[in-house]
């Protein structure tokens, strides 16, 4: 994969993900997080937002990419699609903080090749606060899988529900989380 550029790598992984390859999807999201952080960080740098705000935008962008996956045209390029979603979420954050976007996020696409660093270990993000507003079952499922690193199967047996119910709760919970984030912003 090292020999492929990001466009090729991400569109390959995402195409596999849309065809049902969960492992490719996980790799896609993991390789996306850091470039996204750099991109959003630069776009928001002049607005003097906190690193926590930047990480919130990264998380909301990942969530939007997840929920709007069907809107990527798999015959087209993926980087402009990702950048447009990141830009949309950054503008949303700036509106929340009453600031304006001063650097066009789309222009930074060429600058994505950056050294990998460690992700900032933020302890509390907006999504975490919003998580507590979700129905109990959805909260339990998301916490078990995201914070405790559980699998669908282990979560199902821990909560005493079927794997199908875990999947449904997870998907609905992620959707509700995105809705909460949007409502918090308006």
């Amino acid at each position: 994969m090292l020999l492929l550029d990001r466009e090729t790598e991400w569109s390959l992984l995402m195409r596999a993900a849309l065809d049902g390859d969960g492992e490719a999807y996980a790799r896609f999201l993991r390789s996306l997080a850091h470039p996204l952080r750099i991109l959003v960080g630069r776009g928001l740098a002049r607005a003097r937002l906190s690193p926590g705000d930047v990480e919130d935008v990264v998380q909301e962008t990942l969530l939007a990419i997840h929920l709007k996956a069907a809107t990527w045209d798999r015959s087209g390029p993926i980087v402009p699609w990702i950048a447009a979603i990141a830009r949309h979420k950054a503008v949303d954050m700036l509106r929340r903080r009453h600031r304006r976007l001063e650097v066009a996020i789309d222009d930074l696409v060429g600058d994505w090749e950056v050294a990998e660093e460690n992700a900032p270990q933020i302890t509390r993000s907006e999504l975490q606060t919003l998580l507590s507003r979700l129905p109990d079952r959805q909260q339990q499922v998301i916490r078990s899988i995201s914070l405790d690193g559980g699998t669908i199967a282990s979560t199902a047996s821990a909560l005493g529900i079927s794997e199908g119910a875990v999947r449904v709760g997870l998907h609905r919970g992620l959707k509700a989380l995105a809705d909460q984030a949007r409502k918090a912003g308006s």
Partner: peptide, 16 residues
């Protein structure tokens, strides 16, 4: 929530 934790949740719910 760390971004890595969110990714765990997203990855467990691949888009079909």
């Amino acid at each position: 929530m760390r971004t890595e934790d969110l990714i765990n949740a997203l990855a467990a719910d691949p888009p079909a």
